[in-house]
Design a protein around this nucleic acid. Structure first.
Length: 549
DNA sequence: ATAGGGTTAG
């Protein structure tokens, strides 16, 4: 056996090859007439996929006439991993038309594609096929099903699959626990966790991450601390994934000191842990601190990636700080991150929020790949800087390019109308989003619409609109109307709305201030006084904006 | 076959 073949056989068993080595290996399989052998082809496809060269992987696949299950699985898994779900599913349906039967690994990949790309209905179809194939109690395809049903918010269906397993293995338990976690049922996750322990199944790091992922708010801090304790007791806190789940959990629960603590207890924090902490700081409003931390990360030699850059740019945007934003932009250009849609969308927002919509627009124009979020970003950037017609142009372009607008698109567009005072366009959009795009307007869309009408002085219409909203008790829309009354000094309607708000949200002193401003602008000083006395009784001692009376 | 950080709108 010559050197080349020995090299080939050895390297094929390694998974940490670079793309150039994979290409050499591929060439060797051709040289030794092994390129049509399904075994070698499967390996080559897997290696191309691991190195993100799906194109080459596909070429190899297409050239093999005699395809084994393994070969099909490797190409389907490659597409599913790369989030190219349409390709994955397309290949799956091709496979169903051959005499090769899909196995549990095929189903696992396809189910993964369904949960990220398709909906519950498609998932049920695939589920049916799993059962027909006799894999109903196979743990590999069933745990994929549990995960997928949880991701599309059908936890109960996930539980049914779980219950159908005579003896769930650890992966199965973990999938169900994290299914509960990601669906916001942390208490059910914990219950399942206890049952699992009672049945003698030992949890591992995955279990802990699943439990932690369900803790989203400050009231769950104690629960989180309890789970942290369990991690410490079992030595799981040294796992990188557990570490970053802890950092995230503490930030979400509003306990930044503990987030820092979890971060610092990692001997060598990795990129994900750094960005978990940075994001935690941004969400708690500590944006300057987040920027400093990003710099510290770079100084420590940890290279940033698209996700951490995009998050940090969001901090610059919130601070409306061009300085650091531009610096990061330079870094982005030097390292080629402007090709990442996520990064460029964040850049557009950063420039726009700093008041330089033109620069944002230029970044957008230079993007080679776009998506709905990128369009949302540029539309709101232009619109919120008073460039309404440009914003509408981009909306039309987005539709021509075939991108689906979403809730945020319409928020951005209605916000644009507010800035420009385009009442008619506002009505148009509100109608189109429901009729043409099947998106139900949410409270914030109505808030924009009410503001738009109220600012134009069309109080009647605004009031009617609020009454036409199903379940119109939300304080947001009334607050918007009240602030319009404040601007216009409309005390007749203002009084009605304010009293309504006092009923819905009695503790909101802001509404009392607004009402008092309305009284003041009408010279009704006695009403101003009595409102203030009311507030004093209610324990609200300070009344901002009225210290001069 | 299971796990961590995510850009837009608000």
């Amino acid at each position: 056996m010559c050197f080349g073949l020995a090299f080939l056989v050895y390297e094929l068993s390694q998974s940490h090859n670079t793309l150039s080595i994979v290409k050499q290996l591929h060439a060797l399989t051709i040289k030794y007439h092994l390129s049509f052998d399904p075994f070698y082809a499967t390996k080559i496809i897997r290696l191309y996929a691991l190195n993100n060269d799906l194109h080459s992987a596909r070429i190899v696949f297409d050239r093999i006439p005699c395809r084994s299950v393994y070969l099909w699985n490797s190409i389907i898994r490659a597409y599913a991993r790369a989030h190219q779900f349409n390709h994955a599913l397309c290949l799956f349906s091709q496979m169903l038309r051959t005499e090769i039967e899909p196995d549990n690994f095929t189903f696992a990949s396809v189910i993964r594609a369904c949960s990220d790309y398709l909906d519950e209905v498609d998932l049920r179809v695939v589920h049916g096929r799993v059962i027909i194939a006799g894999l109903g109690s196979d743990s590999i395809s069933s745990s994929a099903l549990v995960r997928a049903y949880s991701r599309v918010r059908f936890v109960d269906e996930a539980r049914r699959v779980f219950n159908g397993m005579p003896k769930p293995d650890l992966v199965m338990w973990n999938s169900m626990v994290s299914g509960y976690g990601s669906s916001g049922c942390w208490d059910k996750g914990l219950e399942l966790f206890r049952r699992m322990q009672k049945m003698g199944e030992r949890p591992d790091g995955y279990t802990m991450v699943g439990l932690l992922s369900g803790l989203w708010e400050p009231s769950l801090l104690q629960v989180g601390k309890g789970i942290h304790g369990l991690c410490l007791k079992n030595g799981f806190e040294s796992y990188a994934h557990v570490g970053s789940a802890l950092v995230t959990m503490y930030s979400r629960c509003g306990c930044l000191s503990s987030a820092y603590g979890a971060f610092n207890s990692q001997s060598l924090p990795d990129l994900v842990q750094w960005s978990a902490l940075i994001t935690g700081l941004i969400q708690s409003g500590a944006c300057e601190e987040a920027l400093l931390l990003f710099r510290e990360m770079n100084l420590k030699g940890q290279k940033a990636d698209a996700i951490s850059i995009a998050s940090t740019l969001a901090a610059c945007a919130r601070l409306a700080m061009m300085g650091p934003g531009r610096e990061i932009h330079c870094y982005v250009i030097r390292h080629g991150f402007e090709l990442e849609v996520m990064v460029s969308s964040a850049l557009v927002a950063m420039y726009s929020k700093s008041g330089f919509a033109g620069l944002g627009f230029r970044v957008f124009k230079a993007m080679s790949k776009r998506n709905t979020i990128a369009y949302n970003s540029v539309i709101s950037g232009l619109g919120s800087n008073g460039l309404a017609s440009f914003a509408f142009d981009m909306f039309n372009e987005m539709l021509e390019e075939g991108f689906q607008p979403d809730q945020s698109t319409f928020s951005a567009l209605l916000g644009t109308c507010c800035h420009a005072g385009f009442v008619k366009d506002g009505w148009d959009l509100l109608r189109r989003m429901e009729k043409e795009f099947n998106i139900e307007p949410s409270t914030e869309h109505y808030v924009y619409m009410v503001k738009l009408l109220g600012m134009a002085g069309e109080f009647e219409k605004a009031y009617q609109l609020i009454h036409s909203i199903p379940g119109y008790t939300d304080s947001g829309v009334w607050g918007a109307l009240l602030s319009c009354c404040e601007v216009h000094g409309n005390s007749e309607l203002g009084e009605v709305v304010a009293h309504r708000l006092f009923e819905i949200a009695p503790d909101k002193s802001a509404y009392r201030v607004m009402l008092s401003n309305i009284y003041a602008s009408n010279g009704r000083w006695n009403d101003v006084k009595s409102l203030r006395d009311d507030m004093m009784e209610g324990g609200l001692r300070k009344m901002p904006g009225l210290s001069w009376t």
